[in-house]
């Protein structure tokens, strides 16, 4: 981690600590809890997309694996949620290896389609395997998490817990990219051939990162299951995978912080849009939640076309520009005096 990361982390912790103080309504806190799941998954996905340069369109499936493993094992066998979360992670690792190893050995974006196909299969299984997943009706009565005797049953308690998990994931990811693996990945990003030639096993690095990102998603899924205590296949479809990727790309895919910004903004966006429905009406536009897809598409397209480094990249280049202007003016002032 570099100094800037510590500063950002401080700001981030401060902002997040203020959220429950400012929001009196539990409903809005729950939106932030959902945002934390997306954030955790996006941190993992950002490692994959931004550092390994690979697209995955199946991460919602890993969230689903985490959620269903936790949901099934806790309701059927009454196992401890912590154990089931761990089992979910193990299953995700196995599947990530099975999907990732063959498709990441190939050049190009085979992983995108392999994960898309895999995500679609898993969704179909979640709907059709009624005996295990409960089918479209889903699984009910999943127990809440128990943290050393403290039962996380309120929105506020879960808010602090899940964002703490996000911070741990964030620390892990930030340390990873400043480690040997991270440097290897950056070399890979510059030129795969050059990285190979100096002895970096590029496909092995890509696979490792894919596994990490799957683990992040799986944990997010387990947390989700224990938070809402009810799961159905709905949130684990392809659209959610695409949405996660959109969050990372919008925030800025070459920086972990971009994923944090993107996932927070886009998780809050539907709320914001439904909030401003009245405002749209004054322009004669009837805004419906159905239009969310279109809005996401427009956001992703305009970011990729005009701000390829995402919002984070946009902010930092704007910041640099301002800094340069200030510096120049300062020099002018000095030379004129």
């Amino acid at each position: 981690m570099v100094i800037r990361d510590y500063i950002f982390l401080g700001i981030f912790l401060l902002v997040m600590a203020c959220v429950p103080l400012l929001l009196k309504n539990d409903y809005y806190i729950s939106i932030f809890v959902f945002a934390s799941f997306n954030c955790l998954a996006c941190i993992g996905l950002s490692l994959l997309l931004g550092y390994a340069g690979q697209i995955s369109l199946g991460h919602a499936a890993f969230i689903g694996i985490g959620a269903y493993t936790s949901g099934y094992l806790t309701t059927q066998f009454a196992w401890s949620p912590w154990i089931t979360m761990f089992i979910g992670v193990v299953i995700s690792i196995i599947i990530a290896i099975a999907v990732g190893v063959p498709s990441l050995k190939l050049r190009g974006h085979y992983l995108a389609m392999a994960t898309l196909g895999f995500g679609a299969i898993l969704y179909i299984v979640a709907v059709a395997a009624v005996d295990i997943t409960g089918g479209p009706a889903g699984l009910n009565n999943i127990p809440p998490l128990n943290l050393f005797g403290l039962i996380l049953d309120s929105d506020k308690k879960f808010f602090f817990f899940s964002w703490s998990v996000v911070v741990i994931g964030l620390l892990f990811a930030l340390n990873l990219i400043n480690s040997r693996v991270g440097r290897g990945l950056r070399a890979l990003h510059g030129s795969e051939d050059a990285a190979n030639s100096i002895g970096i096993n590029t496909s092995s690095y890509k696979i490792q990162i894919f596994i990490f990102s799957a683990v992040f998603s799986s944990i997010a899924g387990s947390l989700y299951a224990h938070y809402v205590t009810y799961i159905d296949p709905g949130p684990f479809g392809i659209m959610h995978s695409v949405l996660l990727m959109t969050m990372v790309a919008v925030g800025g895919m070459h920086k972990i912080w971009g994923a944090v910004i993107g996932s927070l903004l886009l998780s809050l966006l539907p709320e914001f849009l439904s909030f401003s429905t009245g405002y749209f009406k004054t322009f004669g536009i009837e805004y419906k939640p159905d239009y969310d897809t279109l809005v996401y598409g427009i956001i992703l397209l305009s970011i990729m076309l005009f701000l390829p480094e995402g919002l984070y990249g946009g902010f930092s280049s704007a910041f640099r520009a301002v800094k340069n202007i200030v510096k120049r003016n300062g020099k002018k002032a000095k030379s004129s005096s």
């Binding site: 995108a112 695409v242 159905d290 996401y296 598409g297 990729m304």
Partner: peptide, 28 residues
């Protein structure tokens, strides 16, 4: 065509964006 420095990754994400956009338009 408008992308100045095209990388395959960026172009692929753009096509995903176009796909979501077109899907949204079709639904509307």
């Amino acid at each position: 065509n408008t992308v100045k420095s095209p990388t395959v990754l960026r172009l692929v994400i753009i096509t995903i964006g176009v796909s979501i956009f077109l899907e949204g338009i079709a639904m509307v």
